[in-house]
C-alpha cells in the first residue's frame, strides 16, 4: 500500500474535531489525493507525497483572475501575511496562486488531519481576503 492509499483509508474513517474527510484519488504519474474537509468544502486540498515531504495544496485562483494592475500589491501582501498564517504559506504553482502546507513524511496521522483542517480554513480566509483583487 502506498502512503497515499494508506492516508486515503485512514482519512476515510476519521472524524477530527467534528470534521470528516472526503477523499478522491487522482491517478497519474504523480499520485495525488483530493481531500474535501467537511464544512470547508469550498477549498479542496490536493495531497502529494514526495521522498521527504507531504505536500498539501489548495488552488486559490488562477493568476489571470487577479486584476493585472494590482498583482504586485497582492504579491507583497501575501508575502507579508505568510508568517502569520498558521501552518500554511502562499505560493505560485504554474498558473495558480496556492496556499500550501508542507510536512515531514514522518508526521503523525493526527498532524496531517490538523494540517488539512487548518489549511482548508486558511484557504477560505485567504480567498475572502483577496476578493477585492479579483477581476
Amino acid at each position: 500500500m502506498t502512503q497515499i492509499q494508506e492516508l486515503t483509508y485512514q482519512l476515510g474513517q476519521m472524524n477530527y474535531e467534528g470534521h470528516t474527510f472526503d477523499c478522491l484519488p487522482i491517478h497519474g504519474e504523480q499520485e495525488v489525493l483530493q481531500v474535501i474537509v467537511s464544512e470547508l468544502d469550498a477549498m479542496p486540498i490536493f495531497v502529494t507525497i514526495t521522498d521527504t515531504q507531504i505536500l498539501c495544496i489548495t488552488y486559490l485562483c488562477k493568476q489571470t483572475e487577479i486584476q493585472p494592475e494590482r498583482t504586485a500589491e497582492l504579491n507583497k501582501t501575501m508575502l507579508e501575511l505568510n508568517v502569520a498564517m498558521p501552518l500554511s504559506s502562499f505560493a505560485i504553482v504554474e498558473d495558480y496562486y496556492v496556499v500550501f502546507g508542507a510536512m515531514a513524511t514522518s508526521s503523525s496521522f493526527n498532524d496531517v488531519c490538523k494540517e488539512l483542517i487548518t489549511l482548508a480554513s486558511n484557504a477560505c480566509d485567504a480567498l475572502e481576503a483577496i476578493e477585492n483583487y479579483l477581476v
Binding site: 487522482i26 504519474e29 504523480q30 495525488v32 505536500l55 495544496i57 504553482v93 495558480y96
Partner: peptide, 11 residues
C-alpha cells in the same frame, strides 16, 4: 512533483 500534480489536477 508539484508541477505534475497540478497538471493532473487541472486535467
Amino acid at each position: 512533483s508539484v508541477q505534475k500534480a497540478t497538471e493532473q489536477v487541472v486535467e
